[in-house]
Design a protein around this nucleic acid. Structure first.
Lengths: 232, 232
DNA sequence: CACTGTTGTTAGAAGTTCTAACACAAGTTA
DNA sequence: TAACTTGTGTTAGAACTTCTAACAACAGTG
């Protein structure tokens, strides 16, 4: 029989270690996460933490897993909260929740979407958790309406992808729309959290919202767009 | 008088060190770049390399600087090569050059656009080099045609940004279009090179090209899009 | 009481960046 | 030719890091 008190103490120790690791991540980046330093701040010696994490890699793994869960929880909550609203408004809510999560903890966003850890391969459960975020987005897209066919090869691949995770009823055009919506949101967020917009001196939130509106209305009607095909 | 032979030898040594560093970067990520290991592979001892780089940070700095230059050279070459073609074709050429550069050396793309190095602030000359890539894109966008106004605040900020770098004659709508085109290309590329599409099993090139066509034609006409505003 | 499992300790191996002190060779200058 | 300066390399070592091994101490169970 397992000792429940001990088990709880163990969980608390791991949680505290991860909390300090996140502080180090925010202050000094991934390479600034030091098992030794964490232990020191917890009042124990370095090797003591190896009772709780096999090594630095497992600690980082846990941080990644936690972040995926937290992101999925956040966007799912926003989707639930917007229940009953129009699809455009639900997309706006999703996009705002996504952005808020990202910009309030850029280091965590980068942990998920930035440079991958060397040699890291996401375990199956983490992949499934990551899909929860995408599913939340797919769930608020209108499934009816005009569905122009995509490139047939891509369509087939997307259908296979959706089928492999029990979302077989979603039309390929919706899958493509969801996927592309995500890449567009990420395109802006990624550049913002990695500081690329810093020296440019504009408000990234405005750019993000312009992108969201363009997503919703389509480029031809969105304010602030220029069709690249030009005047002719 | 500086010794030219010595100067050349010095440059060659630095170049070789950076070449090996890029190999380490590709194989083991940023944290896998080790001054000691580079020196060993060059047949000298560790501290010898400190005659050429103040430290690991300066070596990484140089890698970043080189990568920005290389990227700018690549896209500028594609822009020049497409001279005389229609704007849509020039955008296609730009996008293909951009993607090829990224996917043939994902680690370098991530060095520029992935998780920033802790404490790193791009020096002014690097920022200017980064802008060369954006300028190349702005240069092939049609400046005439319908120019719907963007959010006025953002427009003003973009004009200020362009003005600060001697591109005052570009209309704000074109700036916004160029910026958004870049974020959209980057959105797909970023997820591809960081391996996020890996477990999904579709061809990222097809998704990228669909995004490019949507960029050029506008969402309402692009194949494979669903307007998020739905059927009503 | 004895046994078991968990958690902590210290010691140490092997690696890292980076500094200091010293040796040597090449080029310049008196 | 001799002396000096500069650049490049060396070894030694400090201060870190991750991580393993061996040992001590404690809690709970039979």
């Amino acid at each position: 029989m397992v000792n429940v008190r001990r088990e709880r103490f163990r969980e608390e120790t791991k949680t505290e270690a991860k909390r300090i690791a996140l502080e180090q991540l925010a202050e000094q980046g991934i390479s600034g996460i030091s098992v030794n330093a964490i232990a020191k701040r917890m009042g124990v010696t370095g090797p003591a933490l190896y009772r709780y994490f096999k090594g630095r890699d497992e600690l980082l793994n846990d941080l990644v897993r936690d972040a995926w869960h937290d992101l999925a929880d956040t966007v799912e909550a926003s989707v639930e909260a917007s229940e009953g609203a129009s699809p455009p408004d639900r997309v706006r809510a999703f996009a705002e929740a996504f952005r808020t999560w990202a910009v309030t903890q850029p280091h965590r966003y980068l942990l998920l979407f930035g440079t991958p850890l060397p040699g890291y391969h996401a375990p199956q459960d983490t992949i499934l958790t990551a899909h929860r975020t995408m599913s939340a987005l797919l769930g608020i897209l209108p499934h009816e309406g005009p569905h122009p066919a995509g490139p047939s090869t891509l369509d087939a691949q997307l259908v296979a992808w959706a089928g492999s995770r029990g979302e077989g009823e979603v039309p390929p055009a919706v899958l493509l729309t969801g996927l592309r919506a995500f890449t567009r949101l990420h395109g802006v967020l990624s550049l913002e959290v990695s500081g690329q917009f810093g020296p440019m001196g504009f408000d990234p939130a405005l750019l993000y919202r312009a992108e969201v509106e363009s997503l919703i209305l389509g480029d031809s009607e969105a304010r602030g767009s220029t069709r690249l095909s030009g005047p002719g």
